[in-house]
Each structure stands twice: as structure tokens, then as C-alpha cells.
């Protein structure tokens, strides 16, 4: 069972995760309007900006984050933004959505001008997240763990970051054992997604360059 302290940490992170989302009117634009390639690019860029703002608001609410050195806070957010964004957007393909919405979104991303070599690993990731059928709590904790990764570039006090990440990892490990008693490997599978995210992160800069070119 989770201790009282762990339950409080879990509630705090899940509440913050649910509270900070992409504004609904922006999310709606993705589904409702037709855009040419350039407008599509601008819309997806605005979405990315909004994702980062939402990510920062969520992160500010992770217990202890604001006690870290200010420049370390920025280094952590910079290092994890792309990964957290992929994680959050994977939700779109996990949740049950009204008929046709998933296809429409996929179509919009596929027609964004991003080249096929980057598209395939991205959709493979979305599929692998979808297969996990993560609970909201697991998604929120995994995002917090991604953000609190001590070995990001330019992080000075890695130990301080570890001290924040470890309790969140413990809660996630326990939660996985409680919610998936038949699947002892579930926690390891979740952590495996973090490795996949790192790979996507590495490809991301290259992907943006090719996207801008096209």
C-alpha cells in the first residue's frame, strides 16, 4: 500500500497534471478547421508553444521543484520539454475519442511536412503508449519522472534532482504493483517508454530542421 505521504504526493501530481491542459479552443482548432500546409505548420507550432506553457505550469506544482536552483529548473524543463510533449500528445491516441477524430489528427500530423523517417518512430511510440493502456495517475507520474531526470545537460546539482525523482519513482512502482498485479513487468515496461522518449528527443532537432526546410 501507499503510505499517507506517498498518497499525498500522488494526489498533488495528478491534480496538477489534470488541471494544466492545452486550452480547449486550441485543441478544437485541430479538429474543426481546414488548413493549407503553411497554416498547418503555424497551428502545430502554436500547439507546441502551448504545450510548453502547460508543461511549465504543471512542473511548478511538482513538490520541491521550485526549491531547485533556478537555472537547474530551466535546464530540466529544456531537457524534458520534447519528451513530456510526446508523452502528453500520446494521450490523444490512447483515449477513446469520438469516431473519426483520431484519424483526422493523424492525417493532420502526417500532412504537416515532417518527413517519413521521423513520422514512423513517432507513430510507433504513440502505438506503444496506446498498448500500455496507462491510467491517468501513471501518465502524470511518468511525466514528472521525465521532467525530474538528473542527467540533463547543464544540470548542476544532480543530487538535488535525484532526491525529488526517487520518491516519485517509488510511488509509480507501488502503483503499478497495485494496479497490475498480474503483470509484474508493467513498471519496467513503463520505464522502457522513457528510453524510447529519449530517442525521439534526439531525433527532434533534426526533425524540426527538415520540417522547416520542407
Amino acid at each position: 500500500e501507499l503510505t499517507q505521504e506517498q498518497q499525498t504526493l500522488l494526489n498533488f501530481i495528478v491534480d496538477a497534471y489534470n488541471k494544466h491542459r492545452i486550452p480547449q479552443d486550441m485543441a478544437k482548432k485541430l479538429l474543426q478547421e481546414q488548413f493549407n500546409t503553411e497554416e498547418n505548420f503555424i497551428l502545430l507550432t502554436e500547439m507546441a508553444t502551448s504545450h510548453v506553457q502547460v508543461l511549465v505550469e504543471f512542473t511548478k506544482n511538482i513538490p520541491g521543484f521550485l526549491t531547485l536552483d533556478h537555472e537547474d529548473q530551466i535546464a530540466l524543463l529544456k531537457g524534458s520539454a520534447v519528451e513530456a510533449m510526446f508523452l502528453r500528445s500520446a494521450q490523444v491516441f490512447t483515449r477513446k475519442m469520438p469516431q473519426g477524430h483520431t484519424e483526422l489528427l493523424e492525417e493532420r500530423i502526417r500532412r504537416s511536412g515532417i518527413s517519413e523517417e521521423f513520422m514512423t518512430p513517432m507513430f510507433n511510440f504513440y502505438k506503444s503508449i496506446c498498448n500500455l493502456q496507462m491510467m491517468q495517475e501513471e501518465q502524470a507520474l511518468l511525466t514528472a519522472i521525465t521532467i525530474l531526470t538528473p542527467d540533463r545537460p547543464y544540470v548542476k546539482d544532480q543530487r538535488a534532482v535525484e532526491r525529488l525523482q526517487e520518491p516519485v519513482l517509488d510511488v509509480l512502482r507501488k502503483l503499478c504493483a497495485l494496479q497490475h498485479p498480474q503483470e509484474p513487468q508493467y513498471f519496467a515496461r513503463l520505464l522502457g517508454r522513457l528510453t524510447e522518449l529519449r530517442t525521439l528527443n534526439h531525433h527532434h532537432a533534426e526533425m524540426l530542421t527538415s520540417w522547416r526546410m520542407s
Binding site: I42, A48, V52, Q53, V56, I74
Partner: peptide
């Protein structure tokens, strides 16, 4: 527009401000 800002600028601005207000 925000979309012209770099990632670090967006993070710094968001950390300083409070979007909830």
C-alpha cells in the same frame, strides 16, 4: 507571437509569470 520565441524563452517567461492569473 509566442511561436517565434525559442524554447528557453518560453520556459523562462512561463516560469516567471503565472498563466493562471
Amino acid at each position: 507571437p509566442a511561436s517565434n520565441l525559442g524554447l528557453e524563452d518560453i520556459i523562462r517567461k512561463a516560469l516567471m509569470g503565472n498563466l493562471e492569473d
